[in-house]
Design a protein around this nucleic acid. Structure first.
Lengths: 258, 258
DNA sequence: GAGTGGTCTAGACCACATC
DNA sequence: ATGTGGTCTAGACCACTCT
């Protein structure tokens, strides 16, 4: 007598969905903002088995709302995002007092946080994606400059740049570690000035390898931002692949008259 | 004697991870490209319980690789992406033979597919995000034109535009359904020419509401693309929020000299 | 050592589309 | 009617961190 069914198939709501909705509301309303009650305790409260509670928690984890920190417990995820401006990736170095400053590191330290990065330089064979964008044959040699960037010790993004070996052979582009005046400057000295860029953004769930490299929680999507830069003669000179954990970035473009 | 442990804690690999890796490899190599074996059969093959198999399948589902189609079975997900050019969102209508054609529908039908959309027009109170972008008070009245777009019958994106009520009152912007010559044209007639745009892209897992509206599988992230358009007097006249299922779009920008 | 979550099992019943 | 996945249970043992 108390169960009504509006017309249409009011599909069944399972205990784990009810529990998830309950917790989701508590998070949205701010009632729950740090650590969740333990799984055993939630199971008892709701009169279900622990596996059922875990299913509810798994649902919320998949929505990016909570993360486990074993064996401390489950926590509401912080949702801080840093602003990411692809248009600045065209000019990764700025100059201050005559000294080159890497734009990314500069911006972060201005915000009072500690940027670190690890750079790995090598010569590799172009895979299909790189080859197509650099207009090379698959397997052609390219210089790979791979960066992993961190803020306050936690990995924040991957930034891998590829240059056609044939065009940069013998230059400082192959220099291991940081190139103090910036690779863009070196390329200009080689006669390759970047004047046109194509940006591509794909959204996906990370591969296990990316999840590992970025130490991502389950339920964190990534944005894959690929920049292909062309010279004034329309030759592709650089292809950069950025992998950004989706929940930590806010991508901004500006277009039109300023 | 056969188990080696390289230095460092070679962390334990659980059965469900092994099974997931196995299936993942089969999918990557193309051995598995349509329907997966049944859960019971997988359980038997690997000598584990069905729940363990389901855990493996859940992992792959979260990676966006497979989807259940109950009660037929599990299937490898198709990974077709359509190209999405935010820069075209500035000019949503093109003109052909003097007739306005909505750019989105035009592009899709050129590809031989069937675009449909449902438009819903109303007056609502601005929430925080809309109010801030349109430089209004929270709760101010705005005209909302909400679209759900589909291709070949399956929902592909959400496209909601908001206009300050104070600026468009009495105009055809409030017209229910399609505005034949395009809202941008109507705004120009009102004296509001869009000359500058700010694009924002956020990557996230969908809320349950979005998942419902877009009929998304679990494990599908979304890109939220917000466009704020300004007039030549730098007044925000339009804010459009696009929700794009991440696995079905490829976002492309072009910058610099053509 | 205590307490957390992480994994696993061997059953059970249900909902649903297809035959 | 059959067979698929979807949900649930009541246990069990393990790994890890903190104290």
């Amino acid at each position: 007598m108390s169960r009504h069914r509006s017309r249409g198939k009011a599909r069944r709501v399972y205990p784990y969905q009810r529990i998830a909705a309950d917790l989701r509301n508590q998070i949205a309303s701010g009632t729950l903002k740090d650590q969740l009650p333990g799984e055993h305790s939630l199971a008892e409260q709701h009169g279900v088995s622990r596996e059922t509670v875990r299913r509810a928690l798994g649902l919320l984890q998949g929505e990016g709302l909570i993360s486990p920190d074993h064996p401390r417990g489950w926590f509401v995820r912080a949702k801080e995002r840093m602003i990411y401006r692809p248009q600045h990736e065209a000019h990764p170095y700025t100059y201050r007092d005559g000294q080159p400053v890497e734009a990314w590191a500069g911006q972060i330290s201005e915000e009072g946080r500690v940027p670190t990065q690890h750079i790995d330089v090598g010569i590799i064979a172009a895979d299909e994606g790189i080859a197509e964008r650099l207009q090379l044959e698959i397997g052609a040699r390219v210089v790979a400059r791979r960066r992993v960037r961190s803020i306050n010790g936690s990995t924040i993004n991957i930034n891998d740049s590829y240059y056609p070996m044939a065009l940069v052979e013998g230059s400082r582009v192959l220099e291991p570690g940081d190139v103090s005046e910036g690779v863009t400057r070196v390329l200009i000295e080689l006669g390759y000035n970047q004047v046109r860029w194509v940006d591509e953004i794909d959204v996906a769930m990370p591969t296990p390898e990316q999840r590992e490299r970025l130490k991502l929680d389950i339920g964190t999507p990534v944005a894959i931002h690929t920049v292909t830069a062309y010279t004034d003669e329309d030759v592709p000179i650089r292809c950069t692949v950025n992998v950004l954990p989706g929940d930590r970035h806010h991508i901004v473009y500006e277009r039109g008259a300023p």
